[in-house]
């Protein structure tokens, strides 16, 4: 259905609290792409992603992997001459594609967030071994071996906890979270 809201405005709505300049202010100088340490591994570099948003290619943007590969290092944000908060935009797009259930299925990022968040909500703390092992199955055999090797090494050096740590007032903590994400049991 046709609407009067452009995709670039839609993104502006998503980031209404972020305080950066709207993406339409981009002058395509390329600083963000040039400075991004992950640029070589992105399917679409930041500068082009912003152009695509501005041009209203919603479906294409939502299907992009680039923002899942963003390391949130804020290099682009700090250097953008137009004051566009590109790193926040990347976060926003992660969130938006999860809400709309529109990310490529083979991505590890969304599943990784899920485990991490569930873990914290359950215990109040993050528990690295659980996190790592639940990811073994997503890695190839070679990576799996090297990950296991690392875990063993950390274990031998006494650097991995044996039991997940929990916070003490866990019940309060869980109720606190329910006030922010209103979902029942």
């Amino acid at each position: 259905m046709a609407t009067t809201v452009t995709f670039s405005q839609e993104i502006g709505n998503l980031l209404h609290a972020a305080g950066g300049t709207p993406v339409s202010a981009c002058m395509q100088c390329g600083t963000c792409s040039g400075t991004c340490p992950v640029g070589d591994f992105m399917d679409v570099r930041p500068q082009r992603l912003i152009r695509m948003i501005d041009a209203g290619f919603k479906d294409k943007v939502m299907a992009t992997r680039a923002f899942w590969y963003c390391a949130s290092c804020y290099q682009c944000t700090v250097r953008c001459p137009r004051g566009i908060d590109i790193a926040e935009l990347m976060y926003g797009l992660k969130r938006y594609t999860i809400w709309k259930n529109q990310y490529p299925e083979d991505l590890i990022g969304p599943a990784f967030s899920e485990t991490f968040v569930k873990n914290i909500v359950r215990t109040g703390r993050s528990y690295e071994p659980v996190l790592a092992t639940s990811y073994f199955f997503t890695l190839g055999l070679k990576e799996m071996l090297s990950e296991a090797q690392n875990a063993t090494m950390l274990m031998l050096k006494g650097r991995l906890p044996v039991l997940p740590a929990r916070i003490k007032r866990l019940e309060n903590f869980k109720r606190m979270i329910k006030r922010i994400i209103p979902i029942g049991d």
């Binding site: 976060y91 969130r95 914290i120 003490k168 903590f173």
Partner: peptide, 25 residues
């Protein structure tokens, strides 16, 4: 005393209000 994880990994911003709540505690 009784601190909780601040949710620093790149993915936790997936819900910013939740991230703020964790830090604010």
């Amino acid at each position: 005393e009784d601190w909780n994880c601040c949710g620093a990994t790149a993915y936790f911003h997936v819900d910013e209000l939740l991230a703020h709540t964790l830090c604010a505690r």
